[in-house]
Amino acid sequence: MVRANGITLHTQRLDPPGPAAAGRTGAPTAVLIHGMASDTMASWYFTLAEPLSRAGVPTVLYDLRGHGRSERPATGYALDDFVDDLAALLTGLDVTGPLLLLGNSFGGTIAFGYAARHPGRVVGIVAVESAPPVPEWMRRVRERLARVAARLPRDGAVTEIGARRGRVAAQRAAETQRMLADTSLARELPASPLPTAEALAAIGCPVLCLYGGDSAVVELAPTVCGLLPQTRVTVLPDQKHTVLIDRPEDVRRLVFAWLAEDCSLDLAQPTTA
């Protein structure tokens, strides 16, 4: 548990094992940022965290404010608050070198927001089913949060989710309902001040965007490439917004190939988590 930006954040740090760490003192630190509402750092922990660490990349995961085991203040859920949390967490962990930021869904938006403020520190961004904080993406976030906030309090909604998707999904839905009831997230986040297009376009590091072919988020790929022409886009056919969880082996393969080809990182081949 790390005190950062006035709250306590639940954090996991995976340092490379001895053989993988040898000769990799200059490797960037990978920071894995999960998505909004029903997600936690577990989605990264069980998919990519250990393979990155075993390949020699120091790896940091954390639960966003209000999520998982991190503190849940009643207010403070604008994009800037999440970016401030990340900056303060890195200071608290004494992570001072280059960063490789990986974000799932809204976690990718936080990564872009951090890179817009600190372009010199970020050497690569992986965004899974995500986009930079541009107005069209934030409109979709607002609509999604509004739908969830309206649906979950209805009688039988959580039970229905459990019947269709299982016990864990029901538990996450119930926790999401509590979070939206106890915090200003659904109001604050959509109203966030956004970085300027010029600040986002100044992000010069390599970018990898992974999308599910059956997800509506893939519609934003042309916007991302227009803003950041160095972006490599890969679409996984027949996949939805949960591509990180549903196709972890493919995500690992694509990320490691991109790290070698676009970021010039000589890493061991990914291993099964």
Rank of each mutant, 00 (worst) to 15 (best):
S70Q: 06
L79T: 03
G92V: 04
V95K: 14
R121W: 09
G108H: 02
P98E: 13
L102T: 10
G108I: 00
D63E: 07
F82G: 01
G108A: 06
A115T: 04
A88K: 08
P119L: 06
L89V: 09
V126W: 11
A78Q: 14
Y77T: 02
D81G: 03
L99Q: 09
L93G: 08
F106G: 11
V122H: 07
D81S: 09
G68E: 00
V126Y: 11
P73Y: 01
V123F: 10
G92N: 06
L93C: 11
V123T: 15
Y77C: 01
L86Y: 04
A88C: 08
R65I: 02
G76Y: 00
L86G: 02
H118M: 12
D63Q: 05
T91V: 15
D85A: 04
G97W: 09
T96N: 13
G120R: 14
G124Q: 06
A78M: 14
L93M: 10
P98G: 12
L93Q: 08
V123L: 13
L89Q: 07
A88N: 08
Y114I: 09
G120A: 15
G66V: 00
L90R: 07
A111K: 01
N104Y: 15
L89E: 05
G108P: 04
G66K: 00
L101G: 06
V123H: 13
A111G: 11
H67G: 07
P73D: 00
V95R: 15
R121N: 12
G97K: 10
A74Y: 05
A111S: 12
L79P: 00
G66D: 00
D81F: 02
L99W: 10
G92T: 02
V122C: 10
P119K: 06
G92M: 06
A74Q: 14
F106M: 14
L99D: 09
T96F: 12
G92S: 12
I125W: 07
Y114Q: 10
H67R: 06
Y77G: 03
V126F: 12
Y77D: 01
F112M: 09
L101E: 03
R65G: 03
A115G: 10
G120Y: 07
H67I: 00
T109F: 08
D85P: 01
I110E: 00
L101W: 04
R121S: 14
H67M: 05
D81N: 10
L64G: 09
L86H: 02
V83Y: 07
H67K: 07
L64C: 12
G66Y: 00
